[in-house]
Nucleic acid binder design. Structure first.
Length: 615
DNA sequence: AACCGGAAC
DNA sequence: GGGTTCCGGTT
């Protein structure tokens, strides 16, 4: 529990009373040959470059593109009577998300108001209907999910050696450290060679960086924040420090990459994006909103203190909630600068676990990684509020079917990318009247074909447990969800178990019904022969393992390798064809969705050789 | 297995 | 500001 402290003057508090240059030491590291030559790009890499890309008014943009409207058209997306997205042209009329459709139209008579797609009774797919009624329809966000994944795919193609983490439907983080490093060494080859007379060997600082022309690269967050008061004398002034660092060069290269990527997305899909480019995720996210829309902002290390200091800290990701409130109350302050005077000790006393993390954030430090997840999500939920409550079993079955249809569509959609996705459990939530919602769950059958019927019947079973079949129920909210979604790829044992037998090649899911039996059997069987690892491979892109047939297993090493190589080639062709179908450029052969850290840099054997390495 | 609460958009 | 979605922790 956080107690509010008496209003002591901050400077009299325990710990530092002054903001000193020491607080920002981390922002001006000496960059050495060891740094640039190191192949381990960690979160402490002083040349780290992270970007956050964010679609402008995404839902509105999706509808605008779908309808083939001019980008300048003022457009809003509505859900029932409220707005869920407002295009930038519409914002010029003073329309905001909090307005009702009626008010918005008053502000802008020629406003285009599009209702989100909905599932409608009797229709299999979501669509745009005339008579939309919250009592009979259920909103569908599928269009936005689909467009979102197209964007991610373009990003992957645009910076193949970068890391990408989809953060939400309209946002993604990119770790550009590796692609930036590649270009840095290309352009300044002298960095790759440690001078013979380097005084401290690899720990010698790099030579001075070249000047940078920022003019085409985006918006530089200025060294002095606008409207900031002049600072006390005892603070170190960063305004005079215009020394460019190699990290700035890295940022500028990152900015080039992001600019290219944004252009590509606009060219292929018509969406404009805003981006932030900085040394870590937190700052990239924060500075992305420096200028919007259709713009990218660059935050150099030197500009961090003046940018951060006047910033209301509750704007910072994860400080927008209770923790931020608690901090504001505890110290009766609102900006980052205000909190710099609080010592780490003091913060730890009051905020325990979160203290170090917050303390570092305030100083522009954030070690969190950009990590792409193979399974994009761990659960999937469809929910419906019912202004007109369900009273009969029939009604209940109807809505469960609607929710089931949505889940089926979404899961099967997701399986196009990752075919081995498997939801372990299904959960039904129901709220009766004003009571809090209750839930029931059950194991979800492992089937390749996840149909509406399978989901609906599982849902109905749970409904009976949860609501019963009384004639006079009064349900105001229903939610149906998959949880525990995983790829069958997790864990080497499960793979071995899964593919141990028979002709799994090309259709591993078909026989995956026996997954659990297989798994337990293999564990009691004991160790598999090592050769097994020469008889299959896992596709980088879809995570499926492909294995030779049983009758191929006692072929010679050479024959097996050829068979595997053929299998692999066929599968790559499949991806190639599907990429084209999807309207995106095919990904480079062998390009991978695995973390770059695990990716070979030419060291990994290729083709057939891959299957004859040491094992 | 059921429930709860936090957070983001 | 509310609805939707996701996540992690607790019992």
């Amino acid at each position: 529990m956080i107690q509010s402290s008496p209003s002591k003057p901050i400077s009299a508090r325990k710990g530092k009373g002054k903001i000193t240059n020491h607080d920002y030491d981390d922002l001006r590291p000496t960059i050495t040959y060891r740094h640039i030559l190191s192949q381990n790009l960690g979160v402490r890499d002083p040349l780290r470059v992270i970007a956050l890309c964010d679609s402008d008014a995404f839902y509105a943009a999706c509808e605008r593109v779908r309808l083939g409207l001019d980008p300048s058209a003022p457009l809003v997306v509505q859900q029932w009577e409220s707005l869920i997205a407002v295009s930038y042209p519409a914002r010029k009329y003073g329309i905001s998300r909090m307005d009702k459709v009626k008010d918005a139209k008053k502000k802008c008579p020629n406003l285009v108001a599009v209702h989100v797609a909905t599932y409608k009774e009797g229709e299999k797919e979501p669509g745009y209907w005339e008579d939309i009624d919250t009592r009979t329809h259920k909103v569908s966000l599928d269009l936005y999910r689909r467009e979102s994944s197209k964007i991610i795919n373009i990003m992957k193609q645009s910076v193949p050696s970068g890391e990408i983490e989809k953060a939400s439907t309209d946002e993604a983080f990119l770790d550009l450290s590796r692609p930036v490093r590649e270009r840095l060494l290309e352009r300044y080859p002298y960095l790759a060679k440690l001078p013979d007379d380097a005084p401290e060997g690899a720990d010698s600082p790099l030579p001075p960086p070249p000047p940078i022309d920022w003019s085409q690269l985006g918006e530089l967050v200025p060294l002095t924040a606008q409207g900031e008061e002049s600072k006390p004398q005892d603070e170190i002034s960063y305004e005079n420090d215009h020394l460019t660092s190699w990290h700035d060069v890295a940022l500028s290269i990152g900015a080039e990459l992001v600019a290219k990527l944004r252009e590509e997305i606009f060219r292929q899909l018509g969406y404009t994006m805003s981006a932030g480019i900085a040394r870590n995720k937190f700052l990239a996210k924060l500075c992305a909103s420096y200028k919007k829309p259709n713009s990218q902002s660059i935050l150099r290390n030197n500009a961090i203190p003046s940018y951060l200091r006047p910033m209301p800290f509750q704007k910072i990701r994860f400080l927008g909630g209770k923790l931020g409130d608690a901090l504001a109350k505890e110290y009766d302050v609102s900006t980052v600068g205000d909190l710099l005077t609080v010592s780490l000790d003091e913060m730890q006393n009051k905020f325990g676990e979160n203290a170090v993390w917050v303390y570092e954030l305030l100083r522009g430090i954030d070690a969190s990684e950009v990590k792409e997840r193979t399974a994009l999500f761990k659960s999937m939920l469809a929910s419906k509020n019912l202004p007109k409550p369900i009273t009969t079993l029939d009604d209940g079955q109807h809505w469960i079917r609607v929710l089931a249809a949505e889940l089926a569509l979404r899961l099967n959609d997701a399986r196009e990318e990752v075919p081995t996705l498997w939801p372990k459990t299904i959960v039904l939530h129901a709220r009766k009247g004003y009571e809090t919602s209750r839930s029931k769950q059950a194991a979800f059958p492992f089937t390749k074909d996840v149909s509406v019927d399978v989901i609906a019947s599982a849902g109905n079973k749970l409904w009976k447990e949860l609501v019963g079949d009384a004639t006079n129920v009064n349900v105001t909210n229903v939610q149906l969800a998959f949880t525990g979604i995983e790829t069958t790829e997790t864990g080497q044992q499960s793979i071995d178990a899964f593919f141990k037998t028979k002709d799994v090649q090309r259709q591993p899911l078909k026989r995956s019904r026996d997954y659990n039996e297989e798994l337990s059997r293999s564990e009691s069987d004991g160790r598999e022969k090592k050769e097994r690892s020469w008889t299959s491979f896992v596709c980088d892109r879809c995570q499926i393992r492909f294995a030779l047939r049983d009758d191929q297993l006692d072929w010679s090493d050479d024959e097996r390798a050829r068979a595997l190589a053929t299998l692999q080639q066929e599968h790559q062709d499949f991806h190639f064809a599907r990429d084209l179908e999807n309207g995106s450029l095919p990904q480079k052969t062998g390009s991978s969705s695995r973390p770059a850290s695990k990716r070979g840099r030419g060291a990994e054997p290729r083709g057939i050789a891959k299957f004859f390495g040491k094992k």
